[in-house]
Nucleic acid binder design. Structure first.
Lengths: 347, 347
DNA sequence: CCGATCTTGGAAAGCGCATTCAGAAAGCGG
DNA sequence: CCGCTTTCTGAATGCGCTTTCCAAGATCGG
């Protein structure tokens, strides 16, 4: 708790009254002119705006919120902001929010810990006017129920809610086709001739992981794949490393590895490099996402592009849309990007 | 403008009064118990807390702010959140802020455009309780004056202010030794035997760029460097590419390239790869920062590590510290990280 | 057992703004 | 030139909370 009010002193910030006085109108008129609430003659509007400008006045959002409801603040829940996937989404969100005069409040959500509620609570406590959930949903029904209850309570209180990447809640959503994207990656390897494939997967408590896994399953089932081995680990570079180590040690015959996201793929590449296993000559590797650095890895990563920044922008636009109407779902496409990390299996 | 108040309806959120009633105390006592304002007996405090918990009450920060001053929101200004440098800083900031019950509002600041004021204004308009400026300062005195005036006005109004990476304003700061870090990178190349070096630099309107450039100058002057060529471009991957192209075309004899940050170095590596110029056999490359992916580039990037996440954490701790006292400056160290992208020049 | 000290309650004043409502100014036809 | 409608305006109210002020009750030492 910050006991700031103790050192209270009239902050010199100009108030609406000051603007009204300078413009020679009533505060009601000034308010209407500034927030567009009612009709004010053009001449007066201009005078008010000029006065506001001269005083470099900015409305106090807290006062406005207190009087009127929610705020022009957009809450964004991510797992880790320093994961390029979320960073790119956040970039898109911040861009669009800024264009609309909204600010963005970022909160961190644990992938696994029970404290993942804290972030939503915090954002809800802040009375944000809109909320974007960029982390995927949870498979654990109990946990999902708790989180979703919190989210639905938020929506019920009038806040706009947008999910990125899952449909666990009946709200607006921006949906990549996780099943399809993973399937494309798998099919690419299969088309190259790979028949013994390892899958580096995140914890199957995340819907993203489950969906992508399902896509790989489908591809494998549709084709004639001899062996498909799964290794689960944290959805991070280190998780990718750990899973790769296990895979290589237990199944030396694999000729290809699919990582369920680029971050894990990065870890896989690093292990392969350390062990002197040439990629793609001995083992092919693919990721999913196409984060910006994928093209600069060693070797450049074959992956499936998801338009993260665009997803962030679309989510922000949905979130900023006036409330009401049916939940909208925007599906975004994906695209196989073949680079240097995949090739036919060794003869 | 969001005209939300039109659809106004008493949001069901519990108010302080509800808590007070449930706990059987006065609102004055409830307020004291919740915000720690005065002395309340342990027994009553517990009862109030339980009541709040039962109602899942959270104080309305806007009401609190309106009554008491600033908010428990930390503003963070970055250039681009999807630049790993800033993303890692943001991660540190969010972590510490969360531990203290503060939320983080991220705003984007243009590196060059005059609109860079918009972000500060927005954050200030939001009455954030603390502000961290992660972007570097500007060399352009006029622009600096405008921005700094805005920042000083903010500090004067009681907000805590922390700068990361520059000292343009007399506030708390977390300072990497940009001069020293760049010098270390240059000295490494010189020690390897390079005598014709290209420098890929950002726009010299940024103090970070100027400082790092100065470090290279010093190293070059202290040693016997035949040729040192500068190419300025945007402080991004694409900027790095452009600068590299210019450098290679105009000075084919260069044996080493220093990029003033890893992002530009990434661009440099990509150009060299496209042209089939082997790194480090024909040309060595270094960066500065050691962003997470530096180790996974092709080839792994020799660079100078700056502890971004730690800088973010320290900045947040400074920002959350109770106000008052002399401006504190935390200097953070750096460390040369030699990887595969540097080697002695070709014979 | 009484006066001094501590704790709590009740009431009320704002913080800055949006909004309601009645009333004033302006515009119009007759 | 009058009475009416259409704009616009100005004063007042409340959003939820912190804080101050004073009185009332509880506690304690002497």
């Amino acid at each position: 708790m910050a006991h700031r009010w103790q050192e209270r002193e009239r902050s010199g910030a100009p108030r609406l009254t000051d603007v009204a006085v300078l413009a020679g109108v009533s505060i009601a008129t000034a308010s209407r002119a500034l927030s567009g609430g009612g009709v004010v003659s053009p001449g007066l509007t201009r005078r008010v705006l000029e006065a506001a400008d001269e005083l470099s006045y900015t409305v106090n959002p807290h006062a406005r919120s207190l009087a009127g409801g929610l705020t022009s603040v957009l809450g964004l829940m991510v797992y880790e902001i320093d994961d390029p996937y979320f960073a790119e989404i956040a970039g898109g969100v911040i861009q669009v929010a800024g264009e609309h005069g909204w600010s963005v409040q970022v909160s961190h959500q644990d992938r696994e810990a029970a404290s993942d509620l804290a972030g939503v609570r915090m954002l809800r406590g802040q009375r944000v006017g809109a909320l974007i959930i960029a982390g995927s949903g949870y498979r654990d029904p109990a946990k999902n129920a708790t989180v979703n209850a919190e989210l639905e309570a938020y929506a019920a209180s009038g806040g706009r809610l947008v999910a990125i990447g899952h449909r666990d809640i009946g709200c607006d959503a921006v949906l990549p086709d996780n099943v399809g994207a993973a399937r494309v990656a798998a099919e690419h390897l299969i088309a190259l001739g790979h028949r013994r494939i390892g899958v580096i997967s995140g914890p199957d408590t995340l819907t993203t992981v489950v969906d992508r896994g399902r896509g790989i399953d489908r591809a494998a089932r549709a084709a004639d794949v001899e062996e498909i081995v799964w290794a689960h680990a944290a959805f991070t570079r280190d998780g990718g490393r750990a899973a790769t180590v296990r895979l290589l040690d237990s199944h030396p015959g694999l000729t290809a590895i699919i990582a369920l996201n680029d971050t894990m793929a990065t870890g896989a590449l690093s292990v392969l490099r350390e062990r002197g296993i040439p990629v793609p000559q001995a083992v092919s590797v693919t990721g999913i996402d196409d984060v910006q650095v994928a093209q600069d890895l060693a070797p450049a990563l074959t992956t499936v592009r998801l338009p993260m920044a665009s997803m962030g922008r679309q989510a922000a636009r949905l979130a900023l849309r006036p409330a009401g109407g049916e939940p909208t779902v925007r599906e975004v496409g994906h695209e196989l990007v073949v680079r240097a990390s995949t090739a036919p299996p060794p003869a």
